[in-house]
């Protein structure tokens, strides 16, 4: 996350872990809306999303749109491979407009040491 700097003190960073799917959608929706309500700038760290489906994607669209309506900012960072894959497939990367950080699976270095 080195390239993400939180200059604005009012910003908040949240890490979404595990599933971003229909099974967690209900719970996540509420959580995201609450998180957005207390900050001006929300950063969602997607690096630990292990699974994402259309419902999850829909949720990301929703929060992004909601932020725009409220004049706030939502940024997605650290997209995990599954997220990148789905964004690619859906052609929505442009809509979100966040720089995609391609995270390679922890590689040779880790093992050799």
């Amino acid at each position: 996350m080195a390239n993400v700097k939180n200059k604005n003190r009012q910003s908040q960073r949240i890490v979404i872990q595990g599933e971003l799917t229909i099974y967690t959608a209900m719970e996540l929706k509420n959580k995201l809306l609450v998180d957005l309500s207390v900050t001006e700038e929300l950063e969602l760290d997607l690096s630990e999303v292990g699974e994402i489906d259309a419902a999850g994607l829909q949720l990301l669209v929703m929060i992004k749109q909601e932020a725009t309506t409220l004049g706030k900012v939502v940024r997605f960072t650290g997209h995990s491979p599954v997220v990148v894959k789905l964004l690619d497939l859906s052609g929505l990367a442009g809509f979100f407009g966040d720089p995609l950080l391609i995270v390679y699976p922890s590689t040779v270095e880790g093992k050799s040491i």
Binding site: K29, I63, Q65, E66
Partner: peptide, 12 residues
């Protein structure tokens, strides 16, 4: 996708 308030996260 409707506004946050009306959106049912389990509907497509």
């Amino acid at each position: 996708i409707p506004a946050a308030e009306d959106m049912d996260p389990e509907s497509c």
